[in-house]
Every structure is written in C-alpha cells, then in structure tokens.
Design a protein around this nucleic acid. Structure first.
Length: 111
DNA sequence: AAAGTGACTGTTA
DNA sequence: TTAACAGCCACTT
C-alpha cells in the first residue's frame, strides 16, 4: 500500500523544514536524511526538482562555504537562487558569500 | 549489469 | 588564505 519513501523523498522532506530566512548546507541535509557524508546525492536530488515550483524551498540549500553552488548545468538558476534568498532577508558579502554564523539553520535535535 | 556523472565535503599542501 | 585530491553513493545510460 504505502509507497516506501525513496532517498530523494527523505531529502525533500528535510528541505521543506528549513525556515524562511535561513539556509542549510548539503552536508547538513544529508545528515538529517540519514545520508551522512553523502552530500553529493543531495545536490543531485535538488537538481531534479522543478525550479518553477517553490513547493520545495530548494533555494535555501547552499554549500559548506556559504555560497550558491554554480554549475553550467543550472542554466542561470543560480542567480534566481540568490535573488530569492535576498528577498527573504539574507544578505551576501561582496564576494557572494552568506554569513553562515548568522543564517545557518540550527534544527532542534529531535527523536 | 557495469561504468560514468555530479547543486558536495573534509583534508592536505 | 585559496586550490587541488580523493572519497562518497544514488541515479542514468
């Protein structure tokens, strides 16, 4: 009956929990999804999302350096990501970095 | 079924 | 400080 949640499903569920105005890193999402150390899989999962929908706040996931990860495969959606984050009140430094000390999501330890 | 790919990360120099 | 390497594994072909 019930579909087993796939790896990606778990990732998406975690991403949905990131509050507005905060960001999380790929590694952090991986850990919370029981995929510790597999940050690349998170990146791949997010790449599969339809960017036109904000059903999943994909824009709130950045790399460990506090930057939007650039890739030629994104066709400019990286700029969209930055724009969306700025409109949520997150500011970027002059080299395009986010201050993680200030904006990094700190999920309560649960369970 | 085996090999290639990648929105990453921590370590090393 | 930044830059280069290797490790990681799910998905695609």
């Amino acid at each position: 009956m019930s579909n087993k949640p796939t790896t990606y499903d778990r990732i998406y569920e975690i991403v949905k929990q990131i509050p507005k105005g905060m960001v999380a890193t790929y590694g952090q999402i991986a850990e919370l999804s029981n995929l510790a150390g597999k940050a690349r899989v998170v990146g791949y999962a997010l790449y599969r999302i339809d960017m036109k929908t904000l059903d999943i706040p994909w824009q709130r996931v950045v790399n460990a350096k506090g930057e939007v990860s650039l890739s030629p495969l994104r066709y400019g959606t990286d700029y969209l990501q930055r724009s969306l984050l700025e409109s949520e009140g997150i500011s970027f430094s002059d080299v395009g970095k986010i201050d993680l000390r200030k904006y990094l999501w700190q999920p309560k330890k649960e369970f």
